[in-house]
Structure formats: C-alpha cells, structure tokens
Write a protein that binds this DNA or RNA. Structure first.
Length: 200
DNA sequence: CGCCAGATTGACT
DNA sequence: GTCAATCTGGCGG
C-alpha cells in the first residue's frame, strides 16, 4: 500500500500542484480491482485573468467546483470526453490541475477493455483517453483523492527530479497565458498528442 | 426548446 | 497538416 498525497498539499498554487503531481500514482478502484498509472503530464488553470479557464468566464458550475475544497476531483465533459482535474488553492479561490496523461502501471487489461485498444501507448496518453481507461465520469466528481476509502486516489510513487521536468504552453486552448503552464516528464512515451502513426 | 462553444480524439489528405 | 463526431452546460427565444 502506498501513502496517499496529503490533503494539505493541494492548498497551493495550481502550477506548484501540477509540478508536484508528476510521478505520483493515480489509483482507480474498480469492482474489487485496481487500475493505476503514474502521472506524466499535467496543466494548471487559474480563475480571473486566465482566458483558457472556465473559471474566467463568469459564474458557472465548473468555476464553482474550482472554488471548492482542494484535493477533490473536478470531472467535466468536453467534445464528448470526460476530463479529470484536481481542485487546488484554498476554498474561494478558483484553481485546478488537469491530469493529461499517465504511464500505465497496474490493471492494463482493464484499461484495454475500457478503451477498446491493446497498445499500452494508446491507453492513457491523453486527458480523454485516461478517463475512458479508468472509467472516470461525472459520477466521480467531487470526491477526495486523499482519503483511504475513496474510489479514486493519488499516492506517492516516484520522485521526478527537476532535470526531468519540461514545461510548455497548454494544449488545445485558444488563448493561453505567456507563462508555460503544462508540465510533463521529459521523454516519457506516454505523453499526450501521439497518434497511431507515431507508434510505428 | 434550439443553438453552439469547447482544457479531445481518431480518421483522413 | 485538415476535419468532423461527440455531448454537456449555458444562453437566447
């Protein structure tokens, strides 16, 4: 059993949390079994002043969720896919971290079944892919990732040194900030944005 | 109720 | 590189 990342560590700037989540293990309990993967790509989102964030677009349910308890899930749909975020910053301040990609660790057979593909590199290498692989939908919204009895958790797994962390602009957003808010493990083969042709 | 944007993906030129 | 399917929430009528 690995130790879960403490609730207090989510009360911080989303960029700090996004960096910190690299190398952590995302654990999903599924009918007595476990599917898990190491987080290798994240993005930070803010509130006012962040044109890419839903929290900057007036009052809406996503913004209200980002203002809620840090360390809880925020699950919402985009283009027919569910995206998994973890709320950051103290309550009242909108902030969140999008989990964009995992390196599969346990329960690859479950993920393959949920995804309908066998190649491990297509299982969890994207925000919509990983939620499908781990059977994450809105029924998992608002749950704590720091509690032992939660069906979705984040645990300590591996330390990723600064030298292995790269940053870039966020993916898929129309208007991004100048600061690079995407964090990923350099050279990891499970980063998002790889199509089938790149697998050859 | 209809319309449409969007933190995506997969198929295709 | 381009493009359309996909679906939820927000907004106008």
């Amino acid at each position: 059993m690995s130790r879960l990342v403490e609730r207090e560590l989510y009360y911080e700037d989303p960029a700090v949390v996004a960096r910190r989540l690299l190398g952590k293990l995302l654990i999903r309990k599924l009918g007595g079994r476990i599917a898990s993967g190491m987080i290798v790509e994240t993005e930070a989102y803010y509130g006012e002043g962040d044109p890419a964030s839903w929290a900057s677009k007036g009052d809406n349910w996503i913004r209200r969720a980002m203002c809620g308890e840090p360390g809880r899930t925020l699950v919402y749909a985009i283009h027919g896919h569910w995206l998994l975020n973890v709320v950051a910053m103290p309550p009242g301040i909108p902030a969140g971290v999008l989990i964009r990609a995992l390196e599969p660790v346990e329960g690859l057979d479950l993920m393959a079944r949920n995804r309908g593909v066998d190649d491990p590199r297509l299982l969890t290498s994207g925000p919509g892919r990983l939620t499908q692989a781990l059977a994450i939908d809105k029924s998992l919204h608002g749950l704590p990732v720091y509690e032992e009895d939660s069906p979705i958790q984040i645990a300590y797994y591996r330390e990723v040194p600064d030298g292995e962390v790269a940053r870039s602009k966020r993916i898929g957003v129309k208007r991004d900030l100048d600061v690079p808010l995407r964090f990923y493990v350099k050279g990891n083969p499970y980063i998002s944005k790889l199509g089938k042709r790149r697998l050859r």
